[in-house]
Amino acid sequence: MEIAVCLKRVPDTAEADVKVDATGKDIVRDKLASTINEADNYALEEALLAKEKHSANVTLVSVGSQPSEEVLRMGMAKGATAAARIDDAGLGGSDSIALAGVLAAWFKGKSFDLIVCGAIASDDGNSQVGPALAELLGLPHAAYVTKLDIQAGKVVVKRELEGGFLDVKELALPCVVTIQTGGNTPRYASIMGIKRAGAKAIEQAASVKPDSRTQLVRVYVPQVVSAAQMFEGTTDEKATKLATLLKEKGAV
């Protein structure tokens, strides 16, 4: 069985001060660390579990500039079989459906049984690429999957719905699934794995011309309108004020 995983390298902004750059359309990235997109880490794990259980090959693909190879190498260090990087030159400002088109062009002519994406990219938060890619390839898909069970000619998935419900459904293979966080425990790469991955070749591919139907106009930092009463001072002073408040609220 042939499985592909789409990996995105994203800036780690969880604790960073995000600033808009001079173009007004992107963020200042030079001081930010980058990592594999959180959901993609779970997607990769799902593929690696399937590799062990069904003796599959796992091929990684990422659209990005040269540093994206870091996430591909990390994926190979964890056990993926092969990796490809599609260069993102000329893709600035294109939307997620255009990006899905770039991936689809790479997938055309190859025969994967299962394509696994993350549910959502932590930077753009679009949740579009997986289902759009599936449609472009004429394949069925399931988004927000937290449980994936590969059977003969089909997969049974559990899709996470709002408010603690799961949508259980069956899809014919080949298909595309997007994996939501939490359904497995992503492994760490071993030192040996990292050494081996360092020596592996990464296929280099060029992007087709993107076709965006939407245009990014600008990005900006929203005004946080906070009506919160902020407790100021030293940690000790702040804690004292909070303790008093908790007492007022009946928690002490």
Partner: peptide
């Protein structure tokens, strides 16, 4: 979760612009 399963592939099928 329903909409995310539908919206992107619908937009592709309609050849329409999508903002999620």
């Amino acid at each position: 979760a329903f909409g995310t399963d539908l919206g992107p592939s619908l937009a592709v099928a309609l050849n329409a612009g999508l903002v999620s």
